[in-house]
Design a protein around this nucleic acid. Structure first.
Lengths: 334, 334
DNA sequence: AATTGTCATGTACACGTGTACAAAATGTCA
DNA sequence: TGACATTTTGTACACGTGTACATGACAATT
């Protein structure tokens, strides 16, 4: 026989059709949901497909459908553990819906141009962006090519672009209230004033609520909301005599804790009280025990994927916005 | 004109050809490396392509080339920060070579069947596997379809499958030597005896070297090499009076440190000395300061991608093995 | 029995590209 | 200039699939 034991070439729908004694169209219909096939031929086709080890070629299918079921996942700063949680949830969610995630980690914004090529050349069905830096160019390019976009925790509201955002305003306010209710009249907040939309929102809300309450306020600016910045800022905190601090994310808060410890300011005795945000795994680690606002990245992922899926189905729906609730987790740090 | 301002349909090589006044083949050749085109027509084509915003449709190209430039990235346990470092390096390396990573996080091994479908249906150019659980079925299936595979830190040596492994034996030995040279005659190692190939190797080498040195040895088994296991095992360490411990990874070591701290056994005063492995970011954090073996995941990623690329070019090369060196990083924990 | 409607099936084309082959153009040398 | 080698170009087919359309089978209705 011409039956090669080695993988000479992939088995196609044509082969299955011949073996099952039906037309190639019948095979195609068998593997297409909501297509019209009689139960009898479906059986025959399935049997033949099974025997030959047939799999539909998604490249060919995508070519015809103008849709690849690939989804671009643009994320920045995998160093922040929260990002890992996000992409973990997102990839699982996408795979559960038979969408395949292409991971595109951005370090410098210059990558973005290359990413656009990657995405458009593969006719991705959609793009989910978690990056810090606002890739407006990428958005425009995708939009003008009719590729659905969902932004997670980003500010720009663009026509036809869905967004999922954390309730940062609530977090900022709640943090200020928490400290105030505990009797403190001098508060502090640490954040990067120019990067990270979500960090800016939390910072803004904390400052606003602080003012409302009439509390004194230290605003500590850092270049980036990361561990290193937190660590190095400990000295500033010490110098200014800060007693309670809202750190706009846990990643940086861990740095603050370690930085203070290095200066000998242990927080078990009357040290600095700290509230963080995100509830990264490390926030629960014994050395930190951060009181923090949990950000429901599972809900966010689901919401984002829902948005994406529905917009893939109907690209003309108006832009939507989902705000996910926060949840205070009390630990030893405050 | 029929010029729609909206994105009615993507611009194809046909459009470019017409505009440039050449045949469609000329366009194709312009965008195919090492194809025969005169400089003059290339210029014309590039100009027309620029004006129309043309991009090669990779789905169509892949269909004809039987190769998609997509690479499956099968990884488990994104909770371990080392995994994040790995996929970060791998995705960047792949993108730098114009390969696109499809991320497939495995939690249960049952996913594997579904992943195989994902991978084969898209005619991925190759697969890189970092998963703990040995997906032998996935390997076989890919191999029988002629898809190159590279394993990172896995044991199975399979025909035609390249591997990149950390020098676990050296790490295990060096850890034992380190403690012995410091004067300790009773050593301990903590690891999951059934999971994680790489952990087993380190454990084995540590035990062997211990025996050679004639040191007493505590072998502490855990179900998984994770933070939680480390944390919970602190009590066992305390009960057995362990003084020095080799933890087969940092993730677990962090748990041990926290677990011991909870029991009041601070390591600043004569506490348990700990050596970890991987040099995850948290190992350098102030609260832990782990002495550890750095695993060069950048080298590993490059080696893996080199293997993959060369095997894509020539699938018939015999299986290769790269062993990456470790590097001791001394901090306060030992 | 004749008519109508429903549904399964096959044929033929389309998706956008790479490339074998032949034809044409160009360059080289006597 | 003619003969020949080399390069460039165009034509035609292939990749593997989804689906519009027409055809035919079969049940339901009159």
């Amino acid at each position: 026989m011409t039956d090669q034991p080695s993988w000479k070439r992939a088995v196609t729908s044509h082969d299955v059709a011949r073996r099952a004694g039906v037309s190639r169209a019948a095979v195609s219909r068998t593997f297409t949901p909501n297509a019209s096939v009689s139960e009898q031929t479906r059986q025959k086709v399935m049997k033949a497909a099974e025997e030959l080890g047939y799999r539909v070629n998604f490249l060919a299918r995508s070519l015809i459908n103008q849709r690849s079921d690939l989804v671009g996942l643009v994320a920045a700063g995998l160093d922040n553990p929260f990002r890992t949680m996000q992409i973990d949830q997102l990839t699982r969610g996408l795979l559960a819906r038979d969408l395949r995630p292409i991971l595109l980690p951005t370090s410098r914004s210059e990558d973005v141009g290359r990413f656009i090529e990657h995405l458009l050349q593969y006719s991705v069905s959609g793009v989910i962006i978690t990056s810090d830096a606002p890739p407006t160019q990428l958005c425009e390019e995708c939009a003008s090519n009719g590729i659905p976009i969902v932004l997670i925790n980003k500010g720009e509201d663009i026509a036809m672009v869905d967004r999922v955002v954390n309730d940062d305003a609530a977090a900022g306010r709640a943090a200020a209230d928490y400290f105030f209710d505990a009797g403190h009249r001098r508060l502090a907040v640490m954040a990067a004033p120019h990067l990270s939309y979500t960090g800016r929102q939390r910072r803004k809300a904390f400052i606003a609520r602080s003012d409302e309450l009439g509390a004194a306020l230290d605003v500590i600016d850092v270049p980036i909301n990361d561990y290193q910045s937190g660590f190095e800022s400990a000295e500033t905190l010490d110098r200014r005599g800060v007693e309670v601090l809202f750190c706009v994310n846990d990643y940086m808060a861990c740095g603050v804790v370690d930085g203070l410890a290095r200066l000998g300011r242990d927080r078990s005795e009357a040290g600095v009280k700290i509230i963080g945000h995100d509830d990264i795994p490390q926030a629960a680690w014994g050395a930190y025990q951060l009181t923090t606002f949990a950000q429901p990245c599972d809900l966010q992922a689901n919401a984002a994927i829902d948005f994406l899926a529905s917009r893939i189905a109907d690209p003309s729906v108006p832009a939507r916005l989902a705000t996910t609730p926060i949840h205070l987790i009390q630990r030893a740090s405050a």
